[in-house]
Design a protein around this nucleic acid. Structure first.
Lengths: 332, 332
DNA sequence: TTGTATGCGTTATCAA
DNA sequence: TTGATAACGCATACAA
C-alpha cells in the first residue's frame, strides 16, 4: 500500500500555501501563471489524487447519485442505467445503483443504505408509499420515472401505461382479434393496474365485452407467463391473441405455447409491453409497446443534475410507442 | 431541506460526551446501561443518522466497493451484481457498479472515476493490461473473476473456458455431429480465445479436422450472431451444428435461422456459452455451458470483505457445467 | 493574488 | 467507564 499524498504535501513541494493548491485544483479563482506551473508540476511529480471523501465532508456533498431500480439485473432497467451513465459522463458524479426487488421493504432498506452517501436520487418503478418518498424528496433532489411523488409531480416522468395498453389492444382489434387474453401484472402494482384498465377500456371503446376468464394474473416474471398459459388453456375459454402486461411474461408465455406446439402468430398472436432488449430477438420478434428506458434514464440524470445546480425542472408525461414486429398477425 | 442532526447534538440531548455516543453507535466499547439508554432515546428522538462521509474521512475509507463489469445492462453480468449485493447485505459497504463496454480505454476510465471513492474492487472480464491491474492491486484489495492479475493469482477466480468449450463440443460429437460451425468472440478477448482453442482441441481429440470456413468471428453481441449465420450460409460449407461463443450471439443466430426457415434443432443444432438468464426461455431452450455468475459474484464479494478484514484468501479455478436443454439433438 | 485560520462530523488517543 | 482533544484532508471566509 502506498502512502497517500495530500494537498498539503503538494503545497510544500511547490512552495505555496495549501489554499493556492486547492484553488488551482478546483479552478475556483485566478492564480498567477508562475505558481500554477509550480503546483502543476508538483502534482504530477507526487501523483497527487484529491481525496474525495474529505472534499465531500467539507462541501456537504458526496458527488454520488443514487439510482433505485426494481431489478438491477433485468435488461429493462439495465437500459436506463446506461442512459444514466451517459448523462453523468464528463461530470464529477458517479451513479450508485441499487434495487428494491419489487418489494417495499427492500426498497426502503435500499434507500436507507444510500442515505448520507448521495446528493440526489433517481427512482424507477416500485411501490414505496408516497409519503416516504415525499419525505426523502424534502431532504434531497429526486427525479422519478414511472411513479408519482406527492408534492413533487413536476419531478416525475410518468409513462402513460393506460394509453400504451389501449393502443396495443386496439391494434389487436384492428387485426381482427376479438377474444384477447390478458396476463396482468401484480395487483398492487400501479403500472400493471393501468395497463389492465387500458385493456378494459379498449374493449369498451370497441363495444366488445371482456370475458373475465381471459384475464390471468402474473407477477412480471417469466415463469408466471408460462403458468398463465397453462391456466388459460385449462379454462377452455378460447382466444386468438394474448396481451402480456410485460415482455418478460410474454417470454414465458411464448415458451409455454411452444411446448404445446401452438404456433405464434399463426395460431395465436402474442404481444407484450416494455420492449426489453431481447424482445427484438424473440421468435418471432415480439410486437410490444416501447418504453424508451435509455432515453428516460438519460433525461432523469440530466434533470437531476439541473436540480443539483439549483435550477428547477418540469417533466412531462410520455406516451410509449407501439413497436410492431412479427408476433401478432391477422386473426384467422 | 432539513437540518442534519450530528453526533454532537445527540450527545447534548443525552447529556453525555460525543465520544460516548460514538462508542455506542459503533459498539466499540462497553458503556453503562444507563447512559446507553439515554443515548438511544436521544438518537430515536432526534432521528440521528451517522454521517458516513465523516466516518470515512477519519477512518481513511469510503465504505464503498467498486465493481467493474463489461456491460452493466447485460443479464449475464447482472446475475453477478445480485450475488454481490447479497454478500454485502448486512455490512456497511455498498457496491458501486460501473462498466467498461468491452473497451480497454473505457475500462481504464471507469476505474479512474472510482479511484478514491472505493476501498476495494471486484473486476469481471475485460482486457485492461495486466500491468495496470497489478498497479491497482498494489493500492487496494482486488478480486477478479475470469481474468488473471499478475502477482495476485490467488485473488482471481478463473473460469475454465477451455474445458467448458471442449465439453460442449464433445457433447455435439456424441450427438453425431461432425461438421460444427463456431461463432467466436472478439480476437482480443481472452475468454473468446480459450473457447476457440477448446473448440479446436476437441476436434483434435476426436480426430476430426476443423474446416476453417466454419469459424466466423463475432463480438459477443446479438447482432453479430445473426451476421455470422449469413456469412456461414454464404460460404455454402455445410454444417449440422453451431457452437456460439456466448449465449447472446446464439440468440442472434437463432433469429437468423428462424428468418431463413431453418428449424432448431431438427435441421441444425445450436449451443452457446454462459447460460444467461433468458437462455432458459429461448426457443427451444438453449443448451449451453453455465457460468454460475450469481454464485461467483457472491464469492467475490465475500472474499473481498475478507481481504478488507486483513485476512488473505486463495481462490481457485472453476469448471463451468454443461446445461443440456433442447437446442441440440442427434445429427440427422 | 496569496496565505492563515477555522470548520465539516466523526473516530482515536490519552488522561482522568 | 467516561470525557476532552487532536487528527482526517479539504474548502473557504477573512486578512494581508
Amino acid at each position: 500500500m502506498k502512502k497517500k499524498v495530500t494537498l498539503f504535501d503538494v503545497a510544500q513541494a511547490a512552495g505555496v500555501s495549501p489554499s493556492t493548491v486547492s484553488r488551482i485544483v478546483a479552478g475556483t479563482a485566478r492564480v498567477s501563471e508562475k505558481k500554477r506551473k509550480q503546483v502543476e508540476e508538483a502534482i504530477a511529480k507526487l501523483k497527487y489524487q484529491p481525496n474525495l471523501v474529505a472534499k465531500g465532508l467539507v462541501q456537504g456533498r458526496t458527488l454520488s447519485l443514487g439510482v433505485l431500480t426494481q431489478d438491477i439485473a433485468s435488461p429493462f432497467y439495465g437500459a436506463a442505467l446506461l442512459g444514466i451513465q451517459e448523462a453523468l459522463r464528463g461530470t464529477d458524479y458517479i451513479p450508485v445503483f441499487t434495487d428494491g426487488h419489487w418489494q417495499p421493504e427492500d426498497e426502503a432498506q435500499a434507500i436507507q443504505r444510500l442515505m448520507g452517501r448521495i446528493d440526489g436520487l433517481i427512482i424507477m418503478g416500485g411501490h414505496l408509499e408516497g409519503d416516504s418518498l415525499s419525505a426523502i424528496a424534502e431532504s434531497m433532489p429526486i427525479i422519478s420515472i414511472g411513479r408519482t411523488i406527492p408534492g413533487f409531480e413536476h419531478h416525475c416522468v410518468l409513462i402513460d401505461n393506460y394509453q400504451g395498453a389501449k393502443n396495443i389492444v386496439h391494434y389487436l382489434f384492428e387485426l381482427g382479434h376479438r377474444r384477447i387474453a390478458h396476463i396482468s401484472g401484480p395487483a398492487d402494482h400501479a403500472d400493471a393496474l393501468e395497463r389492465l384498465k387500458g385493456y378494459h377500456d379498449a374493449h369498451k371503446e370497441f363495444g366488445i365485452e371482456v370475458d373475465e376468464r381471459l384475464i390471468v394474473q402474473g407477477d412480471f416474471q417469466e415463469a408466471s407467463g408460462s403458468l398463465a398459459i397453462a391456466t388459460l388453456l385449462e379454462t377452455r375459454a378460447n382466444f386468438t391473441a394474448i396481451f402480456a402486461s410485460n415482455d418478460q411474461m410474454a417470454y414465458g408465455a411464448r415458451l409455454a405455447l411452444y411446448r404445446r406446439g401452438i404456433r405464434v402468430p399463426e395460431e395465436i398472436s402474442l404481444v407484450g409491453f416494455d420492449d426489453t432488449r431481447t424482445s427484438e430477438y424473440m421468435m418471432p420478434p415480439l410486437t410490444t409497446v416501447r418504453q424508451p428506458m435509455y432515453e428516460l434514464g438519460l433525461l432523469a440524470a440530466q434533470s437531476l443534475l439541473t436540480l443539483l445546480d439549483g435550477e428547477d425542472v418540469t417533466l412531462e408525461k410520455i406516451t410509449p410507442q407501439l413497436v410492431i414486429r412479427e408476433s401478432a398477425s391477422r386473426a384467422r
